[in-house]
Amino acid sequence: MGCFQSKTRKQFPGHENPVILASQTAFSVSEVEALFELFKSISSSVIDDGLINKEEFQLAIFKNRKKENLFANRIFDLFDVKRKGVIDFGDFVRSLNVFHPNAPQEDKIDFSFKLYDMDGTGYIERQEVKQMLIALLSESEMRLADETVETILDKTFLEADVNEDGKIDKSEWQNFVSRNPSLMKIMTLPYLRDITTTFPSFVFNSEVDEIAT
């Protein structure tokens, strides 16, 4: 027999104070509250537990929960700061903050380096780049001869691996992206500037008395 439960507010295990989150990020309090509306919708799409699991994350990106994708997995793992297999609200906001148009470029470069350093060795290695390239080709159902893949890798390392040790370190990456700024486009989400207009319902659910903007 179940226990009686009065109507309590649904629990969000990592729901940190919006005022504190705003103070740690480029978001205003209103924007953090608008992000909470987005978070609620994603975190309840499969299991309504107030946390985002990998399936929910992929569903939000692809509108298809069965789609496996190396890159979406990789982003999920970086958002899952506490390594619990789920993203709580605090980590969601702090991770998205890196993608804010006003976030420091250094943070964006750092995040992108971690994204591609899949094994966490502190280097982007040739076999990692090859793995990502092959994943991309299979995702887009594009066929390239092995020889062409190797040519692309050769060209990439010729440009990025300045000390020619076969791997790309952080400073080589900083140098490489500064010469190829288009690579950092994925690290900025213009949507984050207008988040309060995208999720206006935050106003009705606000927990903060005076909404600071």
Binding site: L96, L133, I152, L183, I186
Partner: peptide, 25 residues
């Protein structure tokens, strides 16, 4: 043509890296 691009230019076009989809209702 892919061969004229470096690997990261190709990779950065992956849909899985496009977090903008999170904001599309």
């Amino acid at each position: 043509r892919p061969v004229t691009m470096n690997a990261f230019e190709l990779i950065s076009k992956s849909q899985g890296l496009n977090l903008g989809c999170l904001f599309e209702k």
